[in-house]
């Protein structure tokens, strides 16, 4: 067996966790690609840092839009460029003005997201350390380097099953949803701005419904949310989803 340094050892554990040597080899290839994008960043360290992001973002095989857009193909993607995701006006305008994500501007953005694009609704205060940002960007470049996720609606429909599917098939009463939303907007701002509590303005219906069922079934554990959701009937959830998915962030 070849002698391995500690860093390679880390990669191997990573590969084992994914359960396949093939994945390991693919990862090694991507890692090389990442280095050309993201300078000295360590994607393995970056994966740990991605824990800060994954409440809202998915990346890699099967990634979907959640509270935030999926991050497949983020490097080289136009800002505000994922079809079917409702961005803040500020993010859309940044993209229209020609902002395309690369390792350098992504790192600047992640330093202080609200300074880089004022009025964007990503609920993240920023990552102060330059090394950490390089690691995170390296991970994003490596893992999100795959082709962008395909047909998001179809994929959502497959993943959302059971009760959530029943609710998705109902036509939500938007006006009723607007009244019920009074309970949500005390914390989740109606403008779409986020100060520590995620924005739910413009969230896709499928994601919204699935998330509420995840609170109902204890997959998500926030007590305030579990409490609010416990008393929501299917028609209430359908109404809320109809209302919030119809909104545009300011």
């Amino acid at each position: 067996m070849l002698k391995t340094g500690p860093e390679e050892h880390d990669h191997r554990r990573h590969a084992v966790r994914r359960g396949s040597v093939v994945v390991f080899l693919m990862f090694a290839t991507l890692f090389h690609a990442a280095q050309t994008f993201a300078g000295d960043g360590d994607p393995v360290a970056g994966e740990r840092l991605f824990g800060l992001c994954k409440g809202c973002h998915e990346i890699g095989e099967g990634a979907r839009n959640k509270v935030g857009p999926h991050l497949d193909g983020i490097i080289g993607r136009k800002a505000g460029g994922v079809e079917g995701f409702t961005y803040s006006r500020a993010m859309r305008q940044a993209g229209q003005a020609g902002l395309v994500w690369d390792a350098a501007n992504l790192s600047t953005y992640l330093h202080k997201p609200r300074d880089f694009i004022a009025g964007n609704r990503m609920s993240f205060r920023g990552l102060a350390g330059e090394t950490e940002r390089a690691d995170l960007v390296a991970y994003l470049a490596a893992t999100g380097g795959a082709a962008p996720a395909d047909d998001l609606e179809r994929r959502d429909a497959v993943i959302v099953t059971g009760f959530a599917k029943i609710v998705l098939d109902m036509e939500g009463d938007r006006d009723y949803g607007e009244y019920l939303a009074g309970e949500c907007v005390t914390c989740h701002q109606a403008s779409g701005h986020a100060d520590g509590i995620p924005s739910i303005v413009g969230v896709p219906r499928a994601y919204f419904v699935k998330a509420l069922f995840e609170y109902k079934s204890n997959i998500r554990t926030n007590e305030v949310m579990k409490l609010r959701v416990a008393n929501l009937a299917n028609e209430d959830i359908a109404a809320l989803a109809a209302y919030f998915s119809s909104l545009e962030p300011e």
Binding site: T186, C187, S191, A194, D195, G196, I197, L227
Partner: peptide, 30 residues
């Protein structure tokens, strides 16, 4: 109803505090 538990993990308590900051921003905007 619910109430926070005694002996909770410090990370949970920190998240609860941060949630309260988000709530303050939310309710005052409301």
């Amino acid at each position: 109803s619910f109430i926070s538990q005694t002996h909770e993990d410090p990370a949970v308590r920190k998240a609860t505090f941060e949630e309260s900051l988000g709530w303050y921003a939310g309710i005052t905007a409301d």
